[in-house]
């Protein structure tokens, strides 16, 4: 996979938006840490694999491509996440679509496996899209919380810290086997997404 064309990216965006719009109403939940809304948001992100893993996969992908990509993703993803979640606050409560989560696992995991040589603009668009979609889903789940905006700042702080640390870790990897290990992690992410897609079809 040499380049991700803009038309293909647009198609992905339309599909992602369509799946978001048909998200089902359900039990939005926010775990309370007892330490205030900032930490509630942070813990919500760290304890939600459907959000954590795509952010990690994006960090791996950006890290494989180098420092410039890592820097771009590190700032684009959290900002887009925050913007998406603020939009989500105004929407009706929804739960993250399992199909959408699976597709993100598959897409990002697949790109990591392929060590895809995306242009910087495509990486930026990918990070923005990922942040907007996941942030939107997070925001819709927090509309009832009294400190939703503060919580979202905590959450996006967690996104920022994760992507900076993970991307920086991968950027400095020089050994061939270490970069292969990152791609194996991408394989695990994509495989988990594929199984999750199966569960979605089955209706677990």
């Amino acid at each position: 996979m040499k380049r991700l064309s803009s038309s293909r990216l647009l198609t992905c965006a339309v599909v992602a938006l369509a799946v978001v719009l048909r998200a089902e109403p359900a039990e939005a939940h926010l775990n309370s840490t007892g330490m205030g809304p900032i930490y509630d948001g942070l813990m919500h992100f760290l304890m939600s694999p459907e959000d954590l893993v795509p952010a990690l996969a994006l960090a791996l992908l950006a890290g494989l491509r180098g420092a410039a990509y890592g820097r771009r993703a590190s700032f684009t993803l959290p900002v887009a996440w925050l913007v998406g979640s603020l939009f989500g606050l105004t929407a009706a409560a929804t739960t993250g679509s399992a199909v959408l989560t699976s597709l993100w696992f598959l897409l990002l995991g697949g790109l990591v496996i392929a060590d895809a040589k995306l242009p910087l603009s495509a990486m930026t668009a990918l990070a923005a899209l990922c942040g907007l979609v996941h942030g939107y889903l997070n925001g819709t789940g927090m509309g009832q919380s009294g400190f939703a905006v503060v919580t979202l700042f905590g959450l996006t702080s967690g996104v920022f810290v994760l992507i900076v640390l993970a991307a920086a870790f991968v950027v400095q990897l020089r050994a061939h086997w270490a970069r292969i290990a990152v791609r194996v992690a991408g394989s695990w992410i994509a495989a988990s997404g594929l199984l999750m897609l199966g569960w979605s079809f089955r209706g677990s």
Binding site: V184, S187, A191, L195, L197, R202
Partner: peptide
């Protein structure tokens, strides 16, 4: 040494997906 560990989980997941889809 790295193609097999990368390919195996993906194909295994496809097998799991087939099972889940009946």
């Amino acid at each position: 040494i790295w193609v097999l560990p990368v390919a195996f989980p993906l194909v295994m997941a496809m097998g799991g997906m087939l099972g889940l889809m009946g």
